[in-house]
């Protein structure tokens, strides 16, 4: 058993185990932490696949920013305390069966006859000065520069959308509505009441 294989099986074991624990976790914070572990395992797998840059990016961006964001929201809304006991039992068998069938079928498709080593041989290991970043950058900034810019715009839109959704203007603020002020009519502000004259009573005085 080569070291690559040992690493592979270790990482995949942790991956599968922590993902299973994550979906069955009742505590939301615990689930987030196990997701973090999932991502670490995935990053390990990616390094085995010689995609170092993306592995590091996964850790830095994904775990570092997105998971932290998750934790922020959970803590802010106090969700972990308000989570009720989930009722898994009813649907679990059905879901597991369906998932198992999907996995079985995909295994049949993606099995060794179609994608094994005899069809796609393992590539040669890269040399020590192989710079994954350089290779990626050479492609990214020349052939794929346009999607790159679009991705930036997409992020900008996401920021604006997130802020616009959640932002609450202050509730009891007094402000002016100019158009309403200009379109006011006299009878909205003033009411004239006529008091009928009663001659008899006046004369009696």
């Amino acid at each position: 058993m080569t070291s690559a294989q040992i690493l592979f099986y270790t990482f995949s074991f942790f991956l599968v185990a922590s993902s299973l624990i994550m979906i069955f976790a009742k505590n939301a914070a615990k689930a987030v932490l196990f997701l973090v572990l999932v991502f670490f395992s995935v990053a390990g797998l990616w390094i085995l696949l010689e995609a170092e840059f993306l592995a590091i990016t996964l850790i830095l961006v994904y775990v570092g920013a997105v998971m932290v964001l998750f934790l922020f929201v959970i803590k802010m809304l106090n969700i972990d305390k308000s989570t009720l006991r989930a009722k898994f039992a009813g649907y679990l068998p059905l879901g597991l069966i369906v998932a198992a069938i999907i996995v079985a079928e995909m295994t049949m498709v993606l099995g060794h006859e179609q994608f094994g080593l005899n069809i796609y041989p393992a590539p040669e290991k890269a040399s020590a000065d192989y710079s994954n970043i350089t290779i990626l950058a050479l492609q990214l900034y020349t052939d794929y520069v346009y999607p790159f810019e679009l991705a930036a715009v997409l992020l900008l839109i996401a920021i604006i959308a997130a802020i616009a959704l959640v932002h609450r203007p202050e509730q009891n603020r007094k402000k002016q509505d100019i158009s309403e002020q200009v379109s006011v009519r006299a009878k909205d502000r003033l009411r004239i009441v006529s008091i009928a004259k009663n001659n008899k009573e006046v004369n009696n005085d």
Binding site: T2, S12, L49, A99, M106, F115, A122
Partner: peptide, 20 residues
């Protein structure tokens, strides 16, 4: 050696766990 299909099967397992 790890073949391509190993990785693919692994990722399909993770995918289905996510679906479940």
């Amino acid at each position: 050696m790890i073949s391509l299909s190993d990785y693919l099967i692994l990722s399909s397992i993770i995918f289905c766990i996510g679906l479940v």
